[in-house]
């Protein structure tokens, strides 16, 4: 096994445990939690093919669901962001994006401008949170509350994800 696979396995368990045991009980102002587990998809290596990426993300979400007892909510949200990740990278990084080349996800995160970093992280977080909260409440008439929750939680998640990515990626060899 090469370092790439080991990295993925370590991140899988680290993020599940950190999210499930620490950040789900963060409760800023009573209801707002940062969802650092999105980092798993944000820094997932590009070289691994898309189908295994989708399946691994699905199981990552499913494992998280066992902590919150809401089977299927996170699984659906993670499958969706895993599917849209290449399109978002193409949109954010423009001609800097090169899926078949030698660039690693580390290069995209370290060598792009600050606006690109924030846009990339924020877009994926917004999609994840919107899907997650709408599946959780499962009612169209609560759309205003869903959007409000999505926006507040996204800012909180953005700060924590940014920190987490620097901690994880900078020390990577």
């Amino acid at each position: 096994m090469n370092t790439l696979n080991i990295n993925i396995i370590i991140r899988f368990f680290l993020l599940v445990l950190v999210q499930g045991l620490v950040f789900n009980k963060f409760d800023l102002f009573g209801i707002y939690d940062p969802y650092v587990s999105v980092v798993f998809v944000l820094v997932f290596p590009i070289k691994i093919n898309r189908i295994s990426f989708l399946i691994i993300s699905f199981f990552f979400g499913l494992t998280l669901d066992y902590f919150t007892n809401s089977l299927g909510v996170n699984a659906a949200a993670f499958t969706i962001i895993a599917f849209f990740k290449p399109f978002i990278m193409n949109f954010v990084f423009g001609n800097f994006y090169n899926p078949h080349g030698v660039k690693m996800i580390k290069h995209y995160i370290m060598e792009s401008t600050i606006y690109q970093k924030i846009l990339y992280i924020l877009l994926i977080i917004l999609i994840h949170h919107f899907v997650m909260f709408s599946l959780e409440s499962f009612a169209i008439d609560q759309l205003a509350i869903i959007i409000k929750k999505t926006i507040y939680n996204s800012f909180l998640s953005l700060i924590f994800c940014f920190t987490f990515i620097y901690l994880l990626v900078q020390n990577e060899r």
């Binding site: 189908i51 989708l54 699905f58 699984a75």
Partner: peptide
């Protein structure tokens, strides 16, 4: 096949959602 796998996984998670949550 990417899209196909995506749709299958999404439907499966929605099935889990509806099947296991009473609400």
């Amino acid at each position: 096949k990417d899209v196909l796998v995506f749709i299958i996984l999404l439907l499966f998670s929605l099935y889990l959602l509806v099947d296991s949550n009473h609400y």
